[in-house]
């Protein structure tokens, strides 16, 4: 892994356009997004529901077979959009890991968590014993008490927070260079959220792993990411260092998003203001999820 390109840029998305075919013609979901992530960097991709942030991230692994992708997604020196499906498959799990939103749905209910954690290693020819040792070690590192014994338990025997640690273990065990975390803490309560993000951050540093965190919650971004990119309606409207974005957001929509982070001293009747930027095309789009 050390003899790869010395260039610090790991992932480079150039003018990515994604559309889905519908009976009324193609529906453009991502409209020309360019984005770069350096090795070991933690980038948060922020936007409201339907802004295209998930679709952008999933395009890196060509997750949706119906989606029409244009532009370039370069991982190292290869363009993912030009790969054969076999090449993309070898990429998945090994160079790019993915953490899903709902940790129970993302786990196979009839296989033990150990089987699932070691699967990425077993697929790549690691022996059973060796894979198990690595798996138990990683689960321990992620703060699962008594990991060796719990290794043979089934997903439904774990709590939400513990399940999400299992999902993270599955995503990172094969030592990917990039981890895509699609709203990894949305299904968890606030205290567990903080702990899971902390663990993700520690793991990323230990393994020099870049993280692309997708979230609609600006409240969790500040302590985690180094850079923030804000999406709206399929377009990237602002990107920059997290401090700069929080201190002086350039785009009115970013300011509106920041103002929308709930605060304890807010009056309960307050709604997401459109700021002085262009009004969303769909009515009340900003608050539906909250």
């Amino acid at each position: 892994m050390s003899d790869r390109s010395t260039d610090r840029t790991l992932l480079s998305i150039q003018d990515l356009r994604v559309s889905y075919p519908t009976p009324e013609g193609p529906c453009a979901v991502v409209k020309g997004v360019s984005l770069e992530i350096a090795r070991g960097e933690r980038l948060a991709l922020v936007g409201e529901s339907g802004s295209g942030k998930s679709v952008t991230a999933r395009s890196v692994l060509r997750l949706d077979s119906e989606a029409r992708l244009q532009g370039a997604v370069r991982l190292g020196d290869q363009n993912v959009l030009e790969m054969t499906s076999g090449q993309v498959r070898r990429l998945r799990g090994a160079r790019v890991g993915l953490v899903f939103q709902d940790p129970l749905a993302a786990l196979n209910p009839v296989k033990t968590v150990g089987w699932q954690i070691t699967q990425p290693l077993r697929l790549r020819g690691v022996g059973r014993r060796e894979a198990r040792n690595q798996g138990v070690e990683l689960l321990e590192r992620l703060g699962v008490a008594d990991a060796a014994r719990r290794f043979d338990d089934y997903p439904h025997q774990f709590s939400g927070g513990m399940r999400q640690r299992v999902v993270i273990a599955i995503a990172v065990i094969a030592d990917p260079e990039l981890l895509i975390a699609d709203e990894p803490t949305t299904a968890l309560d606030v205290r567990v959220q903080a702990r899971v993000l902390e663990l993700l951050s520690e793991l990323a540093q230990e393994r020099d792993m870049a993280v692309l965190l997708i979230t609609h919650d600006l409240g969790i971004v500040a302590g985690f990411a180094e850079r923030v990119a804000v999406m709206r309606e399929g377009e990237l409207i602002e990107a920059g260092d997290v401090d700069r974005i929080y201190r002086s957001p350039a785009h009115p929509y970013t300011r509106a998003l920041l103002d929308a982070v709930p605060r304890i001293d807010d009056s309960p009747g307050r709604r997401l203001s459109g700021g002085s930027g262009p009004a969303p095309r769909r009515s009340a789009a900003g608050k539906e999820e909250q």
Partner: peptide, 14 residues
């Protein structure tokens, strides 16, 4: 279409 099938696919499962 379960998410765990998709997530397995994302791990490079054949």
């Amino acid at each position: 279409d379960a998410e765990f099938v998709e997530s397995a696919r994302m791990l490079g499962v054949s």
